[in-house]
Amino acid sequence: MEEDDFNPEVVKRFMFVNRKAPYGTVYALESLETVLISAAFDQDVSVVFADDGVFQLKKGQDTPGINMKNFSPTFRALDGYDVEKLYVEKESLEARGLTEDDLLVDVEVLSSKELSKIMAAQDVVISN
């Protein structure tokens, strides 16, 4: 037990699973808002990007042409909220012709197999 936990009795593993691309639908943006709020509860938070969700982290997003807010810089701010576990599924990246260099924030790239083990150990999974 860590002594500096705000409420040491209840620390659950929360995983946010992002499988949708940004801008085409609102899910990516509103999911990010949930992640930010969860940071205030001192839980064990991780965020997964799989399938088209990996596009949320693509470098160089430039949105004025569609008159929408570019929320991608917020992913770089997650570290400041102590949300440090960002997992990206390797197979999803590869299927989209992306590499880690295309991503705008430091992440841990995991194989499906590795990721599935971490997923299976969660207490709460929130997907959008």
């Binding site: 209840v10 659950k12 929360f14 808002e33 949930t34 709020i37 969860s38 205030a40 509860f41 839980q43 207490d123 709460v124 999974v125 929130i126 997907s127 959008n128």
Partner: peptide, 20 residues
């Protein structure tokens, strides 16, 4: 209310079941 109510339901409840 705020999104905190969702996180709290995850902490206090035994299960969180999602529909979307």
């Amino acid at each position: 209310s705020g999104l905190g109510q969702l996180i709290e339901a995850g902490i206090v409840g035994d299960r969180l079941v999602t529909f979307g």
